[in-house]
Nucleic acid binder design. Structure first.
Lengths: 222, 222, 222, 222
DNA sequence: TATGAATGAGTATTCATTCAT
DNA sequence: GATGAATGAATACTCATTCAT
């Protein structure tokens, strides 16, 4: 479960050979779009480069002009997705800071926002998570994304440190995010199976996770 | 995310043509064992029937004699795994009932037991979860297994209904299981990515989830 | 030019999974035959596995059933060729020993035999030599074959050691083979280019090489 | 093995559209240089035009501006190489004529010079020979070069015609070159395989070929 | 003239599944 | 029943060549 993927780090940057303008740019976009769509529609296993070519109205050669390999293309999709998500996260944090009058409100808002954020991005996240199981680069990038979210969320929650009853506020904040994230991710099918819940629908889930986290942070282990 | 897999139900039973005794029985066992091992060692993607044949010292023809397809074989593995897990669950529930002097103790014990239970079974569960993403039958069986766990856990927790502060005890119990399950599953890599957590190691995770669930059940949304 | 291919040795034996009888055997033969023919007709570069399949009336899968890779198939062809050649060599040595009444006669017979032997096998040898430039296993096997020829020829020539005027008989014998082999190989196009010679036709070449070698062995550097 | 490449003749001249001066000239040179280097480093099979472009800091389009095809480029490389070699040959002949006091000395010097000449040029010659196996134009040019060498060498050797014991001096001279050339070419790996020789190292080979040729020319078939 | 993005035919290889023995 | 040889669709990737800018 621990880190065996450290050495992957240096491979993380190369964004595909991204052209800056014109027709090239357009077809580059079509590739990424097609790849993203196909990943969403068909999932990881039935994702074939020929289909990307067809859908994106591009030749296979073109794809290999921009990307080193199938893996590289998928990583580019992931990169793009994660950039967009990072922006959304920033906005989310902004909204939270503005609206929060107390730890309780903050946490509940946070949970709600996180839930909707994940739900919004679920369609791409799902295949990406799957991909991560076989591609260490995807895994590493995913981890990195999660870590940066952790950082942002923690500093926000810790801004109300004195309202936190738990004796280890840092730990508690991290746990809060972790638990909420896990619960929503699982519901949304990132873990894939058991993406259900008899009665507990989405709304219930959000509420109760909110309650749980709020209570946890305020009361610690009382 | 909701049920679209209902129609799968009738396919759930056929356990492979399981022979009752003798040499047939033995080679049947070898198939399942080999398949299980291979699934664990190599994961879903590199799982080839020819390897199962080699490892199990069986011919491919034999495999197709017992199972309709690759999918069918994997489903049989899953079935077997789930039966064993159901037994473990029963024991677990037994232990919980015996040792629990209060809701608080019960919950903490439960969380600890669940964590270790999942950890123990992680190696098989991981590829199964992955498999579920492409095989609806596996998905359905996984769901069923989870639901039966829900049932058992709920009746146990609800045996201390009067100590539960939450105004909707059923919902609260279900949520408790769900949250704990999600958190551990994610840590153990069932969801695959982000199976990390900066500081929070396994021990911390178990403790804090325990705290959180206990507090939640006792206090509701206070 | 020196040995850098030693480590290849262990890979030399595996003859493809050669079936012993029946239909399997037949299609195995068809594969090898088709491969050999295609190699001869089209040369190394235009040798595609699909063509082998077509020509041999076999599926590609079948080929991969018997051989690990394209390289492996070609190596099997080479092995077979070399086995046949080793037999021919043995016969050749036999004939030489019988008919030779003097070093001079022996050498001339040897040169003639070698020339015709190489000419007979030129069609397969040509693509094999080419192949050797990119496949170390082929190179190693070729070398081995040559070395075993050297051995046989040397012991034959050295049976008339006292008629050899060269002060280093071993060296002289080895050189004799080497020079004759090189000259014929080049004429036959193993070295590929300039495989001709204005006036000097095959007959002339054989005679003169014979003269040269004979004189060389008898007179040394006088 | 006979001439089937006659019709190729007319294609031999077009030296690529060779610009006479300026920037064009410079990039033209870079192309040829890059192509030559790559041919030497990577051999025939891994020689890709895109790499030439990269290495020569030229666009692929530019290459196609100067050359009709990949084949054409390689032929241009060959042409250039052969021009340089023709010069070297001329010098070589010059040196031989100067220093030679007898047929024996002449022949030994010649063999030594030829050996080193081929060794010096082996790196380019090797891929060219390989190329010749699939490209008739390269084959024809190679042949032409060899023929012109034959001519020069013959007139040099025949300048000592009266010392030649062989009853057909022309034939003997041609054979001398042919045998020496073959032996060295094979050792240097032009024929690719069997580039071995147990004991016989380069020095031995040169000496013995010298002995052999000298004896042959002087004594004929005595 | 120069550029390099785009093309797409061509190829090795994998693996679930079938079926003659 | 049991065997494992045979099948062939599917797929990632390469590279000479073209052509719009």
């Amino acid at each position: 479960m621990v880190d065996e993927d450290q050495e992957v780090e240096p491979l993380l940057n190369p964004t595909g050979r991204e052209p800056k303008q014109g027709r090239s740019r357009a077809s580059f976009e079509r590739m990424l779009a097609a790849a993203t769509d196909l990943l969403i529609e068909r999932g990881n296993d039935d994702f074939a480069l020929t289909d990307v070519a067809k859908r994106g109205k591009v030749s296979i050669g073109s794809i290999y002009c921009r990307f080193d390999s199938k893996d590289d293309l998928i990583q580019a999709v992931q990169r793009r997705v994660m950039e967009r998500m990072a922006d959304e996260e920033a906005e989310m944090i902004g909204r939270l800071t503005d609206k929060s009058t107390s730890l309780d409100v903050l946490v509940r808002n946070f949970v709600e926002e996180l839930a909707e954020f994940l739900k919004r991005n679920a369609p791409v996240l799902r295949p990406m998570m799957l991909r991560a199981s076989s591609d260490p680069v995807v895994r590493a990038m995913g981890r990195k994304g999660y870590d940066s979210l952790v950082e942002k969320v923690m500093s926000t929650l810790l801004s109300r440190r004195d309202e936190i009853g738990h004796e280890l506020p840092e730990l508690a904040c991290e746990m809060t995010l972790r638990i909420a994230y896990s619960a929503f991710a699982r519901y949304l099918g990132f873990g894939t199976v058991g993406d259900t819940g008899t009665k507990a629908d989405w709304k219930n889930l959000k509420t109760e996770v909110g309650v749980m986290c709020s209570t946890y942070l305020r009361n610690g282990n009382r």
